[in-house]
Amino acid sequence: MSRPPSTHRAAIIGTGRIASLLERDPLRPRPHTHAGWYAADPRTALVAGCDVDADRLAAFGIDWGIADASLHADYHRLLELERPDIVSVCAYAVDRVAMSRAAIAAGVRGLWIEKAVACTVEDGEALTREVAAAGAAAVVDYPRRLEPRYRAVSRWIREGTFGRLEAIHVLFSGHVVHTGTHAWDLLLAWCGPWVRVDADLDTPAHEAAASGDDHTRDAADAARYASALRDGIHDRGGRAHIVFEDGTEVFVTGGAKQYFVFQVDLVFSAGRVRIGNDVWEVATPADSPRYTGYRELAPVDPSTWMSPEDLVGGSVLGALLDAMTTGQAPALSLEAATRSLALGVAVMQAGLTRTTVTPSTLDRTLRIASI
């Protein structure tokens, strides 16, 4: 079936996992990738792709029916020849700002950028200003905030459904900026501005041991970290204590593990919520089965606490298309993404310097080169 002439022409720079390949995973819900969402939305047509990996690019073309002539190794050529309306920037973070700038200069009206949005806070802030000055729309890929469960948690915090939010424990496998950026986005949406950060970072030897890697790689990893200091810092795992302006304290446990995990445990004065990729639990006070006259937490069905408002989620692509149509800033904005990056950089800075970092002492030029 032919698409209407008003359909936005979309192109993807970087055709790897989140851009396309995850759509092949039989365990993932669909659509789940940039390409999958473009194919599913009648307002968009995926017309081109770019990647320096020729085999991956060819597979992308086959998967999405893209002609060889519209598969490019150079993103400048793609922008020049294809003239897309929307561009997904799914390459590594070290190139995302330059690619986004090139897309805006080529007249692209919508950007869907992967996270973390940049390697320095300074670059993220500059890109935010440049996109606004060009009159373009941009979103950064933080889909959890649009998902019904996370929307419910946000409302519960806002409305005080389970009393005052006292503390949060975040647990994830991976690195502080690359994986942690999902947590930073949620925490900022839930708790508002942060006021101070303390952190300890994992060493290469710790990461190798925790992930089950052969310890013979430790020396090579240490050399890699040392050489990286010339061009930026390599992302690492670590533990952090973050205090937010509203008084909420957050404890973070992130780093290499022999399993994949992303969970958030929220402790309220009148309840507890656990949410993550593999957990969705709510507990509220009830008469104790162990102590007469005491109340303890007992599990309840989370769905009974959800409202129709929570179920109206949407997609990242939908948020971008709405912003392109209305001219209003999307919830998943570049500005919000840069704040998330800043919190991740603050954790890295606190761990590297062994000092408390505040918004006024944050190093906006600190470059995390390996995101």
Rank of each mutant, 00 (worst) to 15 (best):
V153Y: 03
A133P: 04
G163T: 13
D141C: 07
L187I: 00
V177S: 03
V170C: 13
R151G: 07
W194A: 06
Y150K: 07
Y142C: 01
P143L: 02
S154Y: 14
A134K: 09
G163C: 15
T181E: 02
G135L: 08
A134Q: 00
R144Q: 10
V139Q: 05
Y142N: 06
W156L: 13
W184D: 06
W190V: 01
R149T: 00
H178A: 10
I168G: 10
A183Q: 05
G135I: 03
H175Q: 12
H175N: 12
H169E: 15
R164D: 15
L165P: 10
R164E: 13
W184T: 05
E125R: 12
S154R: 15
F162D: 10
A167Q: 15
V195N: 08
W156V: 07
V176H: 06
E130I: 10
G192N: 14
D185F: 01
I168P: 04
R149Y: 03
V176M: 09
V140Y: 06
H178C: 09
T128Q: 01
E159L: 15
W156I: 12
V140P: 01
P193M: 01
V177K: 02
E159Q: 12
L171I: 08
D123P: 08
E159R: 13
T128K: 07
L188E: 07
L165T: 01
G135N: 00
V131H: 01
A152T: 06
G124M: 03
R151H: 07
V176A: 00
L127P: 05
Y142W: 11
V131G: 00
G135E: 12
G160L: 14
W194D: 02
R151Q: 09
V131I: 15
V139H: 00
R145G: 09
R158A: 15
A189H: 11
E147I: 05
R129A: 14
A136M: 00
V170I: 14
W194Y: 11
V131M: 03
L186V: 01
V121R: 09
A167W: 14
W184K: 03
R149V: 04
D185T: 02
G135F: 04
T120N: 04
